Simulated scan of single mutants.
Amino acid sequence: MNNELNVESKLNILGTNLFYLLIGIILLTIGSLVQRWDIYKGLIITEYIIILLPALIYLKIKRQSLRKVLRLNKLSLKQILLIPIIVILSYPIGAFLNLIVMIFLSFFGEVKPPPIPIPNNEIELLKGFFVVALSAGICEEVMFRGLIMKGYEKLGKWKAIIFSAVLFGLFHFNIQNLLGPIFLGLLFGFIVYKTDSLYASMLAHFTNNALALFLGFIVNKFNTGNTTPSNVTLDISYTKTLIYGAIFLGAISLVAGTIVVMLLKKMPSSDNYISIYNEDYKKSMLTFVESIPLIVILIIYIIINVLNFSV
């Protein structure tokens, strides 16, 4: 028992934050380079070599049980059926939150489309399902709802969910795609704790990305004759269009969100599930030293987005 407690203590917040900073820097340098070389091959390298492999090595160096930290526990059939439905209904909420940011940015200048590979044909769609949906669902969940969320549990499970979700949003390094991933990170984290299984968030992540790819594919099919330039400076009329879209998505999100809450309550809990609402926290908040890696990554995030927005 003492040995088990000593092993658990080795996964701490400072180490987790330093690991996050290191992987973020590698993503922005090597990851960006290989993705510019070839987007699909670059994403494979990013997901498996830059994100997944270091996370597994870090956990082994810290002498952590992968099964325990990553919660590699089976899902029930009802959980497997409910999770995709919950994620599909949550999709407009994430889109609505991202749209709010786009509306804000459109008042100040040019809004550029995020560099996401949108499939133009069925072969690219299948590639996307493997690279963008399945690979990201596995690798990013191991890092964020596995390593990082476990590293933050000394603050309590709710704060672990919140911190891992915010770090997940920042990790995209694109302000237009910030609030949506943070919302999804909160949802994925809650699902992991309720099911006591990382497979739950992997399934949820895959469903979200696969849906995004499929919708992008359908839109491309209908817009094959569209001659609108890829980079458009948004004026106030376009901003109004975004606002109308946000109102429409907001109404859908309100209804969908209500159903999502109901389904989350109905989703069966794991036998090991312990309520995350009333906990005795081991510590209240991050120390200054623990915050330094996050301050650095936030500064990098701001610089990147200011440069992207001003170019």
Rank of each mutant, 00 (worst) to 15 (best):
L33A: 07
G31L: 01
Q79V: 00
L211N: 06
G128L: 10
N220H: 04
F108N: 14
L167Q: 12
I61Y: 14
M202W: 04
F214M: 10
T241M: 12
I259M: 07
F107C: 05
N226Y: 01
Y238T: 10
H205P: 01
K150Q: 11
N278W: 08
K266S: 11
T16Q: 03
K150Y: 06
S164I: 01
L14H: 03
S237M: 06
L198V: 08
M1D: 00
N177Q: 15
P114H: 11
G15S: 08
G31Q: 04
K221N: 02
E290K: 07
V296S: 10
L167E: 13
G216D: 04
L56P: 02
S135F: 14
D280F: 03
Y193K: 15
A210I: 01
A210L: 06
S253G: 05
A251H: 03
S9P: 00
I259Y: 06
T207S: 09
L186C: 08
T239D: 08
L52W: 04
L14C: 01
A133E: 14
E47P: 00
V289F: 11
L242R: 09
Y238L: 06
I295V: 14
T195K: 14
L203K: 14
F173T: 08
L97R: 06
A212D: 05
P92L: 04
G42K: 02
V296E: 13
G180L: 11
K194Q: 15
Y193D: 14
T287E: 13
E153D: 07
F19I: 02
L167A: 07
M102L: 15
A165K: 06
L14T: 02
A136N: 12
L11V: 00
G94V: 03
T227G: 00
L82F: 09
L21R: 09
L187K: 13
